[in-house]
Simulated assay, not measured.
Amino acid sequence: MLYDPQFHTDTDSFPLSFKTLGRVIEAVGTPDFVPRLTLLLNEIVPLNVVHIERSRVDRSKPTGFRCEWIGSSGVGMDTSVISDVMTLYYDRFYDSDPLFAGIRGKLGTMLVVRDIGAIPPGEFRQRLFDEALIAHECVLARGTAHAQDSIALERALDAPPFTLAEMNRFRQVSEFLFPLLELHASTSAAKRVAHPTSFLHPLAQFDARIAADHIRLSKREYEICAHLITGRTVPEAAEIIGVRVGTAESYVKRAFAKLGVRTKRDLIAWGQTCHGLLTL
């Protein structure tokens, strides 16, 4: 994760349609704001998904902040998938997200790049990035004494990483984007507020059992098991991770041998029998 609050800025020109900007300003406080902002950002930095959030100081919360999801939109991505992923994120993962833990409460403008490839195998990576086919993310945040606003840009697996030049353009436009975002957030209802829940998805149960039993699965063995647990077939899992079906089947056999299970149903049940794990 690259964190650089003093990110370089210059006066290089970048593509920006003032007509598009006008449409964003016109949409402040309406449901059209995030989709129009996404189109504007896509002119500056090609992207697939945009997420907008606001965190306000709230000492009654475990993190000291009340996190509000303002909205998300996409370019060439299924909006229902984006919505499902973000609903899951704010219900389950926001409080433990290392990226935001590193910038929460900091003052000024910050640009952070998440190294998705370095995220350890587990439900967080599997459900928020691997299954959503997201490979690259950078977050621009601005914090004051009372709140922090952030704009996250994401790219799909078939897109290249964000370049320094692209991130520099993204950083430059923050001076007029964040005032618009703050005005919109103050005049419209949040789509969702982070509410951690005690419910554990079968994949989270599986992760807990692996940790408790100190079992070592290879990256591919874990990925295959994770896809099976979340309802994929072996051929579907093979296509997602980019291997032949026969190769995927060999991963299944090796993983099942280590876990002492024979079927997908056994695999799910195995994770649910972790001692001390409470599921509500």
Rank of each mutant, 00 (worst) to 15 (best):
S218P: 00
R216P: 00
R244S: 14
I52N: 09
I44Q: 04
V28G: 06
F18E: 14
A226G: 05
E123P: 01
D149W: 06
E43R: 04
H201R: 13
T20I: 13
G276P: 01
Y222S: 03
R56I: 15
A141P: 09
K61A: 13
G102H: 05
V50K: 04
V261E: 06
S17W: 06
V113F: 02
L37S: 09
E223K: 13
T163Y: 12
L267Q: 07
L88R: 12
T79E: 15
V28D: 04
L181E: 06
F178Y: 00
H184P: 07
G29Q: 09
I116G: 01
P121E: 11
L277A: 14
I44V: 15
C67W: 03
E223M: 11
S198V: 09
C225P: 10
A132L: 01
S13G: 14
F33G: 11
M77K: 08
L280D: 07
T9H: 10
L39H: 11
P15M: 09
L157I: 12
F129S: 01
D207W: 03
R54D: 10
D32H: 14
S72W: 07
N48G: 15
S218K: 09
H8W: 11
S174E: 12
H136L: 04
E182N: 09
K106N: 06
A165N: 13
E68V: 11
K258F: 07
V24R: 11
P15Q: 12
A152E: 05
T163V: 03
F162Y: 14
